[in-house]
């Protein structure tokens, strides 16, 4: 089992208590079903209460939880007929992003998502889900392939951010992200993005300029990590709690700010406690959103997408002269 976050301590303690009791019951032949039943009910309440009252930094920890389903878990869990497509046709195949054809509820779609590793070995291969430019270029290639055949694009966002390394800069990390933003804005096919874990800045947005933005209940989406923000603005990463709060990066924040179109509910205790339930909820939300926009006139879709993104932000226009036409 994956390591637990500090706020999960009481939950883990009770889980241990329950398993000990079970063991005792089976060994001693004593009937403890009533005690067990009560404990399980208590655990359920504890889990619900804990997860309903997470503070912002705790939400960040849940979003980064190693037990959460990752892109390939969704691919295996809710899609069928998966056919992975690799490489950017320029440099190499970046395994921090995976993509390919898949089927959801009978509909053929292009699925593209960040992919973190389940263990250290896989994380080295997948660079902890931090793409290089070639990852973004592969993603764009697949999106264009989808549009060519009139198939919708589903993106799953889960990354700490684009990789800040030597080769990434050398090969144009900024250009790769920028080009994706522009090209996603004009892609003539329906697009839906689900932030399934960590929505880390430009590296997340490079898969996120879509018709619909869905955010899972315990996922986050932010312009900078709380640690990075604290280091710059508070001059110490120790202030990550304050930074996490200030950044308004939780799903309910994103919904109230009008950036998220929908929050996908997670099972009590978070997606990592019941991945199947979490994936089913995502499948339902994706199917519903896709059927709402699939079949729309592509030109109208793009016009609506432009209007959606061009309206984003908060500003005031002081009274008086000026103002562009």
């Amino acid at each position: 089992m994956a390591a637990h976050a500090p706020f999960e301590r009481h939950i883990v303690e009770m889980e241990n208590q329950i398993s000990k009791l079970r063991e005792l019951a089976s060994k001693g032949g004593v009937d403890m079903s009533r005690e067990l039943w009560e404990l399980v009910a208590k655990l359920d309440t504890l889990r619900r209460d804990t997860y309903r009252n997470l503070d912002a930094m705790e939400q960040v920890q849940v979003a980064r939880h190693a037990g959460r389903p990752y892109t390939l878990d969704y691919v295996r869990g809710i899609f069928t007929e998966w056919f992975e497509l690799k490489g950017d046709r320029r440099f190499r195949n970046d395994e921090a992003i995976v993509g390919g054809w898949a089927r959801l509820d009978g509909r053929s779609v292009m699925v593209i998502g960040h992919q973190k590793g389940k263990d250290m070995k896989e994380n080295l291969r997948r660079n902890f889900g931090m793409p290089h430019p070639e990852g973004y270029r592969k993603a764009l290639r697949l999106m264009k392939t989808a549009a060519k055949f009139g198939r919708p694009v589903v993106t799953l966002v889960d990354t700490p951010g684009a990789y800040p390394g030597f080769g990434a800069e050398e090969r144009g990390q900024a250009e790769a992200i920028a080009t994706n933003l522009r090209e996603m804005a004009r892609l003539r096919t329906p697009t839906v993005c689900v932030v399934i874990g960590e929505g880390g800045s430009g590296g997340a947005l490079a898969l996120g300029v879509t018709d619909r933005i869905l955010v899972m209940e315990h996922a986050i989406y932010s312009v900078i990590s709380p640690e990075g923000c604290a280091a710059i603005l508070w001059r110490s990463a120790d202030h990550r709690n304050e930074a996490a709060r200030a950044l308004r990066l939780t799903s309910s924040d994103l919904l109230s700010l009008g950036v998220a179109d929908e929050v996908v509910p997670e099972p009590p205790g978070g997606a990592h406690t019941n991945p199947e339930a979490a994936m089913t909820a995502v499948a339902e939300a994706l199917t519903r959103n896709l059927s709402e926009i699939d079949g729309a006139d592509p030109e109208e879709l793009v016009a609506r997408r432009w209007a959606k993104y061009e309206a984003m932000g908060a500003w005031q226009e002081t009274a008086g002269a000026g103002g562009a036409s």
Binding site: L181, R182, I224, Y309, M312, G313
Partner: peptide, 23 residues
């Protein structure tokens, strides 16, 4: 880069400006 004090809105300005450039 993006202005942290406007959080997700500042990130979305990247999408917004790129959308206009697409036009």
């Amino acid at each position: 880069g993006a202005r942290m004090m406007e959080g997700i809105f500042s990130l979305m300005q990247m999408a917004k400006t790129s959308a206009v450039l697409a036009r």
